[in-house]
Design a protein around this nucleic acid. Structure first.
Lengths: 144, 144
DNA sequence: ATTCTATGTTAGAATAAACTAACTTTTATA
DNA sequence: TATAAAAGTTAGTTTATTCTAACATAGAAT
């Protein structure tokens, strides 16, 4: 399946998050999440339907297909990893980190995501000090 | 001045890099760099001219204005910082890092750039091991 | 000087993604 | 049940960015 555009990735991710948070998803919910007009959403949904990534009851609820769910989960996981990385490693505040993660998730690939996860797993205030050179780790080198 | 689009940032950056590398810049040079059609370049240049970021001799060489140079340098600096970060911290190969940096440079802000620079300044193989948890730094914590 | 080739430009079309305005369907409520 | 409000859809427009094809100009080579 051809890679989704940045825009379509955002829509399918929104469907996933809204469904997760509210237990269901309608056009209006996506509107609140993404702050775009309803026709824009309808248009995006029609493309995602053609790609069999989701379906919708007439004038009603939106559901991800199995393959849509798989796709959305990947994007969402990447999003949360990037978010944590921005907050923890770069000290970004939640709101700003959220915005930047939203853009970065369409760029970062699996390899970088894995590296981020590995770093986060092991991250703590001491590692942070060393990373930013606020602590001399040379003695650690000598003993390492 | 309104923020440039991703696309226009790429064009002005290309003008900067080509000028730096060849001492001059023509449409064809940009074409080689960006791999887009000439009309696309001409179109982008016409917008950047309107914004007084560059000018061009008739059928000839392209020059950045003072403000264009300032803008381009900012983008380029951000690009090289991201590139180094991707190569050093995430072990990306040059070609791939280059591609991703090209996308990231339009997203990352000054604050993140500064953090990246600070981290890079201080980075070495030992810090890297600690970052990825390949070395136990607990003794460093206890003595810190 | 004329002609060939590089390079640069214009015109017109395609695509993606957004919008507003108007319309339809569904749901809630009086 | 009739009507009002909310939700969803359609039609048509706009903007940004790209493209191909056709054309214009400049510089090099004969």
């Amino acid at each position: 399946m051809k890679k989704l555009s940045r825009s379509l990735e955002n829509y399918i991710e929104a469907v996933f998050i809204v469904s997760k948070e509210y237990g269901k998803c309608r056009v209006t919910d996506i509107q609140k999440k993404l702050k775009v007009s309803k026709p824009s959403i309808v248009n995006a949904l029609s493309i995602l339907k053609k790609k069999k990534l989701l379906f919708q009851e007439k004038y009603g609820l939106i559901y991800l297909t199995e393959s849509g769910l798989k796709t959305a989960k990947k994007i969402y996981k990447k999003h949360t990893t990037i978010l944590k990385f921005l907050e923890n490693i770069f000290d970004l505040r939640a709101v700003k980190a959220e915005k930047i993660a939203c853009d970065m998730e369409h760029i970062i690939d699996k390899k970088i995501q894995n590296k981020m996860e590995k770093i986060l797993k092991n991250f703590n205030p001491e590692v942070k000090k060393i990373l930013y050179g606020e602590k001399d780790e040379t003695f650690a080198i000598k003993r390492g």
